[in-house]
Design a protein around this nucleic acid. Structure first.
Length: 861
RNA sequence: GCGGACGUGGCGGAAUGGUAGACGCAACGGACUUAAAAUCCGUUUCUCGUAAGAGAGUGAGGGUUCGAGUCCCUCCGUCCGCACCA
């Protein structure tokens, strides 16, 4: 606390927007204020802090802010369960968690703190919404939602468990509700293409984003219908396909149950109406989809094959056709699509193979239960026969594009995306109000800018189901800003993903009360140079933020496309689980572990009851395998927690939190402190010696090598290797001191002090409190947190003589020590003279000798 | 089903195509101590050997190369993402 006080007093982590040094913006995903920080936060924020402290020392103006993703459902749940107001609950949690974060010694600029539930923040978000609306990036659509009839609320997919509401247990219904959507799909192509420019993002995340956007190229084809078979004389049906080449293998057409034509037929066909109704109850959960059988209903409608007026196809309504994708209708080619094949096999429609694998005789090629989806040559397809799939696709498109019906071509090429527009309406209280007003006369009217923010009313209750905003007459009923007549507010609030889609921009100038950003300042700080967070946000949060940045560019709030230059996804913190005899879980803090030889045994500390040691799993409340960061920081200190978080695993993999590991970290902290104490006891000359003994050189080399390696490893976020380097350096210094004569010579003493100064600055980003203490012990009066990063003496990294491994036929058999810049021929001579080589050659001359300078020698016998 | 990642000692993990196992944890032996803890010194991939040493070894099998944990192919296993996307 002493050092944190010193940092605060001197304000060394506050960042000025006019700092002339090169900028570096490091950001960790801001937390949801759930109550207390957990180990995942400790890991995330430690990594970010190492980067921030390193970059600051390396001469950058570092922006390293923190805030709170403060809207969301848990606050409402708490309100319902504990009769506390969501706002009070949230701000209490923020206060607790802020204190916890501060005790970690993070180098954050708290002056820039924002909370998304603060009207001073969401006011600007409402402004952004209105700007987006003007720019045509907002729309209002009917969307299917999961409706809980008991709680009278919309449920997210994750809240629907086995088709029932997670809280009420009521059977969930599908309802069409008016939803505000952001038109992210307008940017689908751009968001997809720009992924290739994100070269400092993990490949995995880039791939996940690509798949999520899900681009596919295909053909829209308008099939003619026999009007006498349709309910209202409809004459055509438009479908989307990526396989127009298989048109001559068509066996049926299928409509989504929600397709307008399906609904039209159902009006006079109770059986179909029932079928559609059943489809709606099938549920949207993964298991339901996995196990659902392909089912169809023949509407009696006949479609005409686009290349053969005499060829008609039956039109079915089928449960596996999605209204959301393409046109909600397909043509089915069973031979080359597994779903279509399952379907025809069930309804006895048969199949015609039209693509034949290379090398197979078309006459004997038949499809039974396995569709053929690989490449091949066209067969049974009239003018397409013999073509490749790609050529056939082209040929079909070319012919149908030329043909027209009713002044429009029969087909046109189209690109389709899996990405859907972003529905942001949530029927909840604790979120950012959507600044719109519904007027009977004028329709939906935006709240004028001058009336922002639309603040949440605080006098609400959660004792009844549904959204309290809906019941709050005084808040809800307003005058229409256009006509002045009676109107009502939009009572939906925004998805909390909106809040987190631009906070990184707000941090650049959180003091601007008039606008979301100050564009010059935002432009100067952006993009975020290093963003660090969990893989769970690899898709939605990052994609939404990328969209938001583009939308804010379009509306003049910032001038860049990609918000995050570098992205890093950290692994989880996992821990052993412990189970009592009665099946209950025990917490790590309640358990004592004893090692007996190779086996470990666990007992309850309080009662001595043995507990079973279970699998290592993600820390979770349900398995109770959590460790409270406060407990660790109290018993070991923040630096130990930080050090262990960085030490054990590569940062992108899971780290196993273990008592033994923490103790190891703690031992090392003590050791470093003793080591620095010993160095501090050495009296060194003020002047740098002109000559160094071998002993002194060894120490200097160890320190400078560690310096070079740690710098590189921090740049590449390889913190586990930094830790190993620092261990090695400390080991080398200990050894040097241990082997030294009683009174160190001046040059050795000087080298030791130099190495000590370097070592302390090297581990400062990881263990700032210890580093300050050590820095002071070494006699410095400055704060190590403000010191610059040491400079490597490159000469010290280069050895004058080196020892090369000598391989014989690829196996290491000897070493040879040669001058660093020895000629290949000289090395070869030296190697051939070695006993081991002579023995292996047995008098013969080698077939070949490969000398890789400064690396290795390989003798091929 | 589609896509991707990974597989190295008892464990976490190191290793620009160039000495496999850095560093840490655990374990074992020793010193100090009345004792324990802490600390310090040492051993620790496996097999054979008292030792010097020899042989094997990065999931399995094949290939490229003077040389493969690393690159290529096949298979096995684990994990992750998406998933009735036409």
């Amino acid at each position: 606390p002493r050092w944190r006080q010193a940092w605060d007093d001197q304000g060394i982590f506050a960042t000025a927007n006019d700092d002339p040094k090169p900028k570096y913006y490091v950001l960790e995903m801001f937390p949801y204020p759930s109550g207390r920080i957990h180990m995942g936060h400790v890991r995330n924020y430690t990594m970010g802090d190492v980067v921030a402290r390193y970059k600051r020392a390396a001469g950058n103006a570092v922006l390293h802010p923190m805030g709170w993703d403060a809207f969301g459902m848990p606050a409402e749940n708490a309100a319902m369960a504990q009769k506390v107001h969501p706002k009070a609950w949230t701000y209490e949690n923020i206060a607790t968690m802020k204190k916890q974060l501060q005790s970690m010694g993070l180098s954050l600029d708290w002056a820039r703190e924002v909370a998304t539930c603060d009207p001073a923040y969401y006011k600007h978000q409402q402004k952004l919404f209105l700007d987006f609306l003007k720019a045509g990036l907002v729309a209002r659509e009917y969307r299917k939602v999961n409706w809980d009839p008991v709680d009278q609320t919309v449920l997210a997919n994750e809240q629907v468990i086995d088709g029932r509401g997670w809280r009420s247990g009521a059977v969930v219904e599908q309802r069409d509700l008016h939803q505000w959507v952001f038109k992210i799909s307008d940017y689908a192509e751009e968001l997809l293409e720009a992924i290739d420019t994100l070269d400092r993002w993990p490949d995995k995340v880039r791939l996940m984003q690509k798949n999520w956007i899900g681009r596919s190229e295909g053909l829209l084809i308008r099939f003619a219908l026999k009007p006498e078979t349709t309910p209202g004389g409809e004459s055509e049906l438009e479908i989307f396909t990526t396989r127009p080449d298989t048109l001559f293998g068509a066996k049926f057409m299928a409509l989504s149950p929600d397709h307008p034509l399906s609904l039209a037929v159902a009006k006079n066909n109770p059986e179909l109406a029932k079928f559609i109704e059943d489809c709606h109850h099938l549920g949207t959960s993964q298991e339901a989809i996995d196990t659902a059988e392909k089912m169809g209903f023949d509407t009696g409608i006949k479609a005409v094959h686009p290349f053969d007026p005499s060829w008609t196809l039956p039109v079915y309504v089928a449960n596996f056709i999605l209204m959301d994708y393409g046109t909600g209708a397909i043509f089915g080619c069973p031979a080359h699509d597994q779903r279509d094949l399952d379907f025809v096999n069930k309804y006895g429609l048969g199949n015609i193979p039209v693509v034949c694998p290379e090398g197979q005789d078309p006459k004997t090629f038949v499809i039974t239960t396995e569709a053929f989806t690989d490449d091949g040559r066209m067969i049974n397809s009239r003018f397409l026969d013999g073509m490749t799939i790609a050529d056939a696709k082209n040929e079909v498109a070319k012919r149908l594009e030329k043909e027209s019906r009713g002044n429009r071509p029969v087909a046109q090429r189209q690109v389709n995306y899996r990405l859907r527009d972003w529905g942001i309406s949530r029927q909840r209280y604790w979120g950012c109000p959507i600044p719109m007003i519904h007027c009977e006369k004028c329709g939906v009217v935006p709240v004028p800018d001058s009336d922002l923010p639309v603040t949440l009313p605080e006098d609400v209750s959660f004792d009844k189901p549904g959204n309290p905003l809906d019941r709050h007459a005084a808040w809800k009923n307003v005058k229409c800003p256009t006509c002045g007549g009676d109107a009502r507010r939009e009572t939906d609030t925004m998805d909390t993903f909106v809040d987190s889609s631009w906070y990184f921009l707000r941090f650049t100038d959180p003091w601007n009360e008039n606008a979301p950003t100050t564009p010059e300042i935002a432009n100067a700080w952006m993009p975020v140079d290093q963003y660090i967070g969990g893989i769970e946000h690899a898709i939605l949060h990052l994609l939404y933020s990328r969209f938001f940045t583009r939308a804010m560019k379009k509306t003049g709030h910032v001038n860049l496309d990609e918000p995050f230059g570098g992205m890093f996804t950290q692994g989880m913190v996992v821990h052993e689980t412990y189970r009592k005899k009665n099946g209950e879980w025990a917490m790590p803090a309640e358990v004592t572990i004893v090692s007996e030889g190779d086996t470990r045994k666990a007992t309850l500390t309080a009662t001595g009851e043995p507990v079973a040691i279970g699998a290592i799993e993600k820390m979770s409340k349900s398995k109770r395998n959590t460790v409270d960061p406060d407990d660790i920081m109290e018993s070991y200190g923040a630096d130990v927690a930080r050090w262990f978080m960085l030490s054990d695993s590569p940062p992108d993999r899971d780290v196993i939190w273990s008592e033994e590991g923490v103790q190891g970290a703690s031992r090392f902290v003590q050791r470093l402190w003793r080591l620095v104490g010993e160095i501090a006891d050495v009296t060194a000359p003020a002047e740098r010696p002109t000559k160094f003994s071998d002993q002194a050189l060894t120490v200097r080399k160890a320190a400078h090598r560690a310096l070079a390696n740690v710098s590189e490893d921090i740049e590449k976020l390889r913190f586990n290797r930094c830790v190993a380097q620092i261990y090695e350096c400390a080991n080398a210094l200990s050894d040097a001191i241990g082997s030294a004569e009683t009174a160190p010579s001046p040059d050795f003493a000087w080298a030791l002090r130099e190495a000590g100064d370097i070592l302390v600055r090297l581990f400062h980003p990881m263990m700032p409190h210890l580093a300050e203490e050590c820095w002071a012990a070494l006699g410095h009066t400055t704060l190590v947190s403000t010191e610059s990063w040491p400079t490597v003496e490159a000469d010290l990294l280069v050895e004058t003589t080196i020892t090369l491994p000598v391989q014989i036929n690829g196996k290491k058999r000897a070493d040879v020590t040669v001058p660093r810049d020895a000629e290949k021929a000289d090395i070869e001579t030296a190697v051939l003279a070695l006993d081991a080589v002579q023995r292996a050659l047995d008098g013969k001359s080698p077939k070949k000798v490969i000398v890789v300078p400064q690396r290795i020698v390989n003798v091929v016998a």
